[in-house]
Amino acid sequence: MNFETGKFTEEGEDSLFRHFEPDTPEVMKINSLQGREYEYSDYLGTIEYSIARYFYEDDRKIKDEDAVSALKNIRKNCEKNISFFKRDLEKEIIENLIELLEGEPISQHEFKLMIDYVLEVIDNRAWMEDEQAYIKWAAYVMGLFTEEESEDYEKSIKKLAAKLGLSSKHADLMLLKGNEDDYFEFVENYGGDEGEELTEEALIDEVERKFLSLTDAEKVDFLLENGPDLYEFVGFYISELSERDEFEKIQELYRKLIEKYDDFIYLYVFMGGAYIEIDPALAKFYFEKALTSLDKLDDFSDSTKEVFRANILELIEKIN
């Protein structure tokens, strides 16, 4: 018996359930922790740090699916004693949460919402072509990686972003490196909901939605301001103008962007794509400009350049 808490804490015979506060009508109205992350940051951080630490220090072979399985088992059996759980990862998460709950108790409903939130965070990285996408990211943001490991991880994320046609700012968002302000500023300037808190994925979706709702003049101003940093939107707008057969506006946009930004490789590719059906010769000209600019870029690794080169040459081959 712990005489300070009055709880039975013999090794293996404590449980999360013993530390929960009663659920109240007010608490039961909470359906999600989205937008309430700050209130529960200690608990969310404890769960994610437990997973990241276990991966980094104990078992580098565990996968995201192992973390998901552990969290679901803990959620389902939170009333069971620690001795019920067989996996070390589960025990570590539970023990660390109990230590926190002893001083800052929450209700069972809040606990389950907390687990659901982390499960959603893991699922949001399922598209990243890596069975350890979440676990590696957690170890990175928790500062567990060495400097060399962090650099390698950042390179891998930037390479993935380039492969998927995402901008450097998207890559920074994936790394949580602090460039969210650029996105928030854009959403706020063009009618974002005051006080609304968005997840990384929702934030990007909101920026895209806001951009597509702008007038043509506003879109041009935005693209001239952000250019290569948010080049996806250049592609959105050129595609939109192409569908409307407004090729004069496409040429006007091209002239303005190329005056401001040298060797804008994505612009050349987007221009080639816009003309590949109606003017193959002009499309080939833009693709060849993209090839020329490719060798001048220092931001891309040699392997990334070769992937780009192969893709562009394939487009040119289709024209020939």
Rank of each mutant, 00 (worst) to 15 (best):
D295Q: 14
I30E: 11
F233T: 07
L257Y: 03
G165A: 12
N96V: 03
D279E: 13
V118T: 15
F145N: 13
E10P: 00
L224M: 15
A52D: 08
K318D: 14
T24S: 12
D298K: 15
I135W: 04
E185P: 03
D263Q: 08
I238Q: 04
N189L: 02
A281S: 14
L44W: 01
P228H: 02
V68F: 03
V118W: 10
G235M: 09
F285Y: 15
S156I: 08
A281Q: 14
E200I: 07
P105V: 09
L113C: 10
S32F: 00
E188S: 14
Y266K: 15
E180P: 02
R255G: 05
G12L: 01
L282C: 05
E201S: 11
F233D: 05
S239C: 02
F17R: 05
E48G: 04
I62W: 04
L100Y: 03
L44P: 00
D66Q: 01
R75A: 10
F222Y: 13
R75I: 00
N81C: 02
L176P: 00
I93A: 07
E180W: 07
N311V: 12
A67M: 05
Y261T: 12
G12M: 06
Y38Q: 09
L253Q: 06
D182C: 04
I204D: 08
E206S: 12
N31P: 00
E180Q: 08
Y286G: 13
D299C: 06
I135C: 05
E194L: 04
G143N: 12
R244T: 09
G272V: 05
L257H: 02
F3T: 11
L224Q: 14
R75P: 00
E277W: 05
L267Y: 10
L198C: 04
L257T: 05
V234N: 06
K177D: 07
L71Q: 03
R244G: 03
L315W: 12
G235K: 09
Y275N: 12
I135A: 07
S69V: 00
F287G: 11
Y275M: 10
I82H: 02
P228V: 07
F211T: 04
A162H: 12
K296P: 09
R18W: 00
T146L: 10
E246Y: 04
P105C: 07
E148F: 01
V269P: 10
S293K: 11
Y254L: 01
G227E: 07
Y40Q: 00
A133E: 10
V187C: 12
D58H: 03
V307H: 08
N179T: 15
S150M: 13
Y183T: 10
G192P: 06
D229W: 08
Y134Q: 08
P22N: 08
A126D: 14
T304K: 08
S303W: 09
Y268R: 09
L173Q: 13
D66P: 00
K305V: 13
D66T: 01
K7N: 04
L253T: 08
G12E: 04
K260D: 11
F3Y: 08
I316D: 03
G6K: 03
E149I: 08
G103M: 10
N226Q: 11
